[in-house]
Design a binder for these strands. Structure first.
Lengths: 146, 146
DNA sequence: TATGGACCTTCCAATGATGGGAAGGTCAAG
DNA sequence: CTTGACCTTCCCATCATTGGAAGGTCCATA
């Protein structure tokens, strides 16, 4: 199976398959005589695993940890559970931060007359920092969301 | 005021102040005879505005729009209100997506015995895609969170 | 006055995940 | 045999931010 078919079956673009190989998230596959990468069913499984994990916001680095557990079946599934729960905690923290942002903006918008006055409280508050919490350094242990 | 003091007062690092100048988010400040950038109170105001907006997850590009409204006082504050409410909507959408991710992971973790069995349902589900929604293309019109 | 250290300048590189594209090789159908 | 759809590697861009190198400036202290 060539990389294109693998991409279609797994939902991971060919570009990203090569990238994952590059950063050692997956191991280099066998090559045909023409130099094309050759994938089989187990690779598709692996790529689908990666795609779903990425969809859930898991970092490539975190996936790498899961992959290791996956390959090394001697490790307990409790490790996997722990990783998953850690990720849940990170997601919930991120959710609280977003809620705080949204509430601040909603509060400001509610107080904004929208009548063309030059002293719009949104701009004033952003400039002066009136009261609402300023969550600096949000995503320290978590990274980006997609 | 040199760039270091401006950084301290505004909470924006000197690196980022130069970057914002580079991408034309702020205009080049005056220079002293020695070539040092010279800032005044109004610049600090502007930088604080930028910092707070970034804290709220507003993109530099979006801030650029707000800055334009700020500088051009002839524009109605209703425009600012509209931008803020658009951002609130984006935040709430992002929040729902995160909730879905977290629920999926919690569901999987709850069904995981954590007893070392090799068929941990978390791994199985990630690999096979069992039932739960797969929110592809999450952040299309929104970008990254910090 | 000399020197050291704390500033400042510009430029270059890296991060993470992904997309885009160029230049060139390969394969299969018409 | 040509055409088009693949494949390969390599480089560049994104976004916000940090880090560092190489070199200039300012001020206080020995």
């Amino acid at each position: 199976m060539n990389i294109g078919e693998a991409a279609n079956l797994s939902g991971v673009s060919a570009k990203m398959i090569r990238y994952y190989e590059d950063v050692a998230l997956i191991r280099p596959p066998a090559r045909n005589q023409n130099g094309y990468r050759a994938y089989d069913e187990s690779n598709i499984h692996e790529l689908r695993f990666i795609r779903r994990a990425r969809d859930l916001g898991v970092t490539v680095e975190q996936i790498s940890g899961l992959m290791h557990l996956w390959r090394d079946r001697s490790r307990a599934s409790s490790d996997v559970k722990r990783l998953a729960l850690e990720h849940v905690a990170a997601l919930e923290a991120k959710q609280r931060e977003i809620a705080e942002m949204a509430n601040t903006l909603k509060h400001l918008a509610a107080n904004c007359q929208g009548d063309g006055r030059p002293d719009c409280p949104i701009i004033e508050s952003l400039a002066d920092g009136c009261g609402h919490a300023s969550p600096r350094h949000l995503g320290k242990g978590f990274g980006k969301l997609r």
